[in-house]
Amino acid sequence: MLSAITGLKALIFPESKGCPLCGRQGAPYQICRFCLQMWADLAEGLVPCTKCGRFHSGQKGEMICWECQEDEPQYIMSRAVAPFEGLVREAVHYFKFCGRRELSYPFGELMAALIVQLFPFRTFSAVVPVPLHINRLRERGYNQAALLAGVIARILEIPLQEEALLRIKETPSQTFLSRQEREANMKKAFIPGKDALLLKGKRVLLVDDVYTTGATVKECCQVLASAGVGEVYVVALAAGIVKDKKDNKPKEV
């Protein structure tokens, strides 16, 4: 009886799903303008590094962050939608750790829009997600990067190559590790997968959810390069903020 009443009530006063983050009424499965504005506000006053896409103050007028200046990554360039802070961090956590896999659609859509604008006139032969170790995959049930890559591949009509990379080393969570520890951790974590040969000499798009220190992505690039892949572009939903270097003065460009 009670369910009949709630059923009728839902017919007459329907509640739409609304924004997947804040619940505000509007188009379902789409992050609302208010949430996205807050994402944009997080990046206010910051500039993305033209190489790794992480956000930095850009106070000295330089375009490339000091980390990339010291140690240039192998990929052509990397971009992210928003800084990995506050609301964005929260949203990514929902997506990764709370089983909210339906968030992959709005996130992937954002990333696709970013790719179209920031990597214009580049044709990619494949979208490759950063893989998850098999044990972690079993535990979580899905690979968030693969979900994002799937959405991007569908929107941009690029083939998805999930098997191009394979993760063979089960690494603990990177969250509390330093940069050096992460890099060490990542050594020999990946090997080329069975589809890697297909990508020989091609241009591919590597997809990850968060770009913090770049250790994971750099390692993946290394493996892809060793398998003969031509060029790698990287896209992530969120990227860390590069703190200004305290002790060392940044090099003059």
Binding site: G26, A27, Q30, R33, L36, Q37, W39, A40, A43, E44, G45, L46, V47, P48, R79, V81, A82, E109, L110, A113, L114, Q117, L118
Partner: peptide, 17 residues
């Protein structure tokens, strides 16, 4: 109704609508 544009520092996001 549902279309909006958000200006990030590095790109402009236009919603699907």
């Amino acid at each position: 109704r549902e279309g909006f544009t958000i200006n990030f520092p590095h790109f402009r996001y236009q919603s699907v609508a």
